[in-house]
Computed example of a mutant assay.
Amino acid sequence: MKDTCPACLTRDIAPAESRRRGDRTVDGYQCPNCRHTWATVRDLAAYSDIHARRAQRRTRRSAA
């Protein structure tokens, strides 16, 4: 999942490293613009509904 740099607000930065810990994912980022580093922890259950809706849209498009 891409993120925005909290220091300079550069958008769409891909994680430099990702690790999964149980039902959470930890992503480490480094901004290519200002070199600021940060990490995020996301609860995968909170994103399961988003991913399910995206999968359904792909199915509908491919069926058309």
Score class of each variant (00 low, 15 high):
42 R>I: 06
11 R>G: 01
49 D>Q: 09
35 R>A: 09
51 H>V: 01
57 R>G: 00
57 R>E: 05
2 K>E: 07
1 M>I: 15
31 C>P: 05
10 T>Q: 13
54 R>H: 02
58 R>M: 05
13 I>Y: 11
47 Y>H: 04
38 W>E: 04
39 A>S: 14
18 S>F: 02
13 I>R: 10
57 R>D: 01
11 R>Y: 00
60 R>W: 03
18 S>N: 02
51 H>F: 06
21 R>S: 05
51 H>P: 00
56 Q>S: 01
33 N>S: 14
18 S>W: 01
22 G>S: 04
3 D>N: 12
5 C>Q: 11
47 Y>F: 04
51 H>D: 02
21 R>F: 08
26 V>H: 05
14 A>S: 13
49 D>C: 00
8 C>F: 12
8 C>V: 07
30 Q>I: 09
48 S>L: 03
45 A>N: 05
53 R>I: 04
60 R>E: 13
9 L>E: 15
63 A>E: 06
40 T>F: 03
5 C>P: 09
54 R>L: 10
4 T>L: 14
56 Q>G: 00
30 Q>T: 14
4 T>F: 14
26 V>C: 00
13 I>K: 09
12 D>W: 05
31 C>K: 12
64 A>T: 05
48 S>K: 12
42 R>W: 01
53 R>M: 02
47 Y>R: 02
13 I>V: 13
8 C>R: 10
63 A>S: 10
52 A>R: 06
49 D>V: 01
